[in-house]
Design a protein around this nucleic acid. Sequence first.
DNA 1: CGACTATATTTTTTT
DNA 2: AATATAGTCG
Length: 638
Amino acid sequence: MSPLAIELGAPDTDRDADLAISACLNPNDPKSFFLYAGAGSGKTRSLKEALHGFRDKHGVEFRQAGKKVAVITYTNAAADEIAARVGQDTLFPISTIHSFCWSHIGTYYTDIQAWLLATLPNDLADLRQKQSKGRAGKASDDRERAIAATIKRLEWLSIPRRFTYSPNGDNFGADSLSHSEVLKITAAFILEKPAMQAVLVNKFPFLLIDESQDTNKILIDAFFALAAANKGKFALGLFGDTMQRIYADGLPDLGRNIPPDWARPLKRMNHRSPQRVVQLGNSLRSAVDNQIQLARNDSIVGTVRLFIVAADATDKPNKERKARERMAELCGDAGWKKDGTVKTLTLEHHMAAARRGFVPMFQALDKDSRLSTGLRTGELAGLRLFTERVAPLLAASTAGDEFAVMAHLRKNSPLLKRSVLANSSTPDDPLLPARAAVGALLALGAENPSTRLLDILECVAEHRLFEIPAALRPFIEAEPVPVAPETTVQNPEDNETEGEAEASPSSLQAWRAFLETPYDQIAPYAEYISNRGPFGTHQGVKGLQFDRVLVILDDSEARGFLFSYEKLFGAKPLSDQDRKNAAEGADTGIDRTRRLLYVTCTRAEKSLALVAYTESPDTLAAAVVKQGWFSADELERL
DNA sequence: CGACTATATTTTTTT
DNA sequence: AATATAGTCG
């Protein structure tokens, strides 16, 4: 059935790796290590065993000496996951890279100021140089803003200052450091300040880095230098898989440049995926390295299909529905037909928007680059009025849950503030205005596609049902006479997220266009940004796993230029640049795409479907069979 | 007008 | 970081 054989292994095959790590975590003879741990290899379990084993053997002495084992990860989600599985313990604090760095540099404000004063003038010169040559446009506007902000920041730095780390998109105060500044400053301090080295080495004789392949290369280099300069006192432990490097930030040849005195334990098992998926992962990475994963000897065979669709297909969601129905049939698994039990992965957010029907609002707000981050995280106050105030109210109300309606209003509506109720103009029935407001909102028919966000906004504003965030205030009629002074007090939460963003013409325009689009997009949008919905991005699901995974490969719909599935699948010829990169041994777009595909495919726990949209279906089909990635009977045309 | 060069474009994550 | 396109040169 499948072109390659697959080796199976017993669940405890990788015990040696855990023993090797345990040996490295010896306070009397600390040894750095690089653990190669592929997809689903039980990396977190190894981390847990290592930490618990360390606590049993050396916990008491470490605590007495005030020493700790630092565990740093890439994302908050990963930090939470590890904390949940390993357990919280002050002996091994678990944090993201950024918060770890900030916690160490935050108090060195004089040094930070010196670093900024040395760095910013260069940045400014670069920006000015570019701006003098650049054409007018979106990028030019952004540069102009950056230049003004940098000048303002340099002026602000003319007297001694302290700093915070709380960036809000592009819009943060002079005292706030950006994400990349925090990492760069930490790397610089580690390399240049003996005091910083001493603090780190004494407090954290062991530093364990999860997803090390994606850890910022400047910082990784600094940690390597720290380890080299402090042998016998300090050791690094890198956990990762170079095949899963999917961010440009990571060190490309990590794994090839490990010092010879480091331990290099290896985990060979894949505990997550069925045999066919493990085998696909092996064949995908065979072009890159010789690592072969074993499937568990108690695993299922599993099913993989590649559905090939013409790139100009008119009804893509329908094609994808057909693919799922076929998977249900092939796997005898009705879960493929249901919406909530398949994870569908798109390369970019707007592709999910197209499939969930919230393109109009997404496109409208995406026009202003300063709103794009908040749009993708759902943190814009102007959006949260709809996703967190209006939508839950309407949901509770249509469900007939009067208790939930009142609870929501009490928490969020100025109409139910104590001071407002006390001064009610209808003392016999103080809740009358709130009921009228909810009634008016329901009467708008939010489920009707012709109801615009603006209609909802006007209704909310007219009845003072919720506070209107600053971004949306320009679009409502002159404010009615306040019911009570308190009602004009702004919700402090909203201030936080949108910062001081003064309404620029472009953001006003974006919000205006947004308000003209239908309200019925809010529910799918809210579900999408919550990450609980059926869609995710190829990059965003790193580290996660799902029973049924549907990977959508569609270059024609993608806007970015980092990945090309058509080239990877041989449906589009390599460019001169690609050949040049390959000849020089540099990372090519094809390599990047292959790693991303490896990440998405290895998320599957039961079965995996890929839908590839292509300009040349026949070429693609022939190429993937020739590569040994799929057998001919695993290909289906839709 | 053709050949060449310079520039704008996009994604992800981090408090 | 790859590529389309706008701009410039001969």
